[in-house]
């Protein structure tokens, strides 16, 4: 990870106010292609607001988002997607009742014919689904199986593969390992690692789990009360720093001592 690399997305002095409330107060961070940038912070630190601004759900009050050297102004999620920002929310936006392929292409089906009544090219769509899932390490034997029959980890992979296939250069993952079992958490982390290896995608990983962040993150940014309170490369930060910064910068000391007192 040399610093000579150009960041894929530069966020500069981003401010977001909801009326009187300042959710983000001048947040800046750079994310590089092929890197996992962990965004950490306690509840209410502004993580969700930041990703919603990046995803085009809320427009920014001031500040700039520069993608690949071009200034991005998003007022709808569509604009953000078109600019190459793919957001995978916690609920994954999947329909458990239909097949993997139908979900992969939901809203962007490959079709021949007039408008919405065009025939879906199922064979081609199945092929692409299998290929794209395989690229990030999941082999599905039957793309016609309902998503409901997949494990939580596989579903996460499906959502990630879908975002990448439809042009996401910057992948925002919102708490991808929460609500999963141990084994599935590892599955998801492996998937993220595989995306990282692709080399051209910048990943913003929002997580509460310090251990997971340490396993795969290249760079960290810590948020507290809408401001960046620390950032750095993985190798520069010690475990205690991470713990302290995650808690919002307060010296909470050793949890064990606290609880013992």
């Amino acid at each position: 990870m040399s610093d000579s690399k150009k960041p894929l997305i530069e966020i500069k002095d981003l401010v977001k106010r909801f009326g009187n409330f300042t959710a983000l107060n001048g947040v800046s961070l750079d994310v590089y292609p092929g890197e996992v940038h962990a965004l950490l912070g306690d509840n209410g630190a502004g993580k969700s607001t930041l990703i919603k601004v990046l995803a085009g759900v809320h427009p920014a009050t001031s500040g700039s988002i520069i993608i690949d050297g071009k200034e991005g102004k998003f007022s709808t999620p569509r604009q953000a997607t078109d600019a190459g920002i793919g957001t995978v929310y916690q609920d994954l936006a999947l329909n458990a009742l239909t097949s993997v392929t139908r979900n992969f292409f939901l809203g962007r089906e490959i079709k021949k014919g007039p408008g919405a009544f065009g025939l879906m090219q199922m064979k081609e769509m199945n092929r692409i689904t299998i290929e794209e899932m395989a690229k990030i390490g999941i082999n599905i034997s039957n793309p016609e199986q309902p998503v409901g029959t997949m494990s939580g980890g596989q579903r996460q992979t499906l959502a990630i593969a879908r975002a990448i296939y439809f042009g996401a250069k910057i992948l925002i993952l919102d708490e991808p390992t929460s609500a999963l079992g141990q084994k599935q958490q590892m599955e998801v982390l492996k998937t993220i690692k595989d995306v990282q290896k692709l080399g051209h995608i910048a990943i913003i990983l929002i997580t509460h789990n310090e251990i997971h962040a340490r396993l795969i993150a290249d760079r960290y940014t810590f948020l507290s009360l809408g401001e960046v309170i620390g950032s750095g490369l993985a190798e520069e930060l010690g475990g205690d720093d991470i713990k302290r910064l995650m808690a919002g910068g307060a010296e909470i000391g050793d949890l064990r001592d606290e609880l013992g007192a």
Partner: peptide, 26 residues
């Protein structure tokens, strides 16, 4: 329409998971 077309996929997803369908631009 229901099993072979884009509209069919939209109908299933609208009923199956409305917010997911909306998030994917249906």
């Amino acid at each position: 329409v229901l099993s072979r077309t884009q509209a069919g996929n939209w109908i299933y997803s609208t009923g199956g998971n409305l917010s997911a369908a909306q998030a994917n631009g249906v």
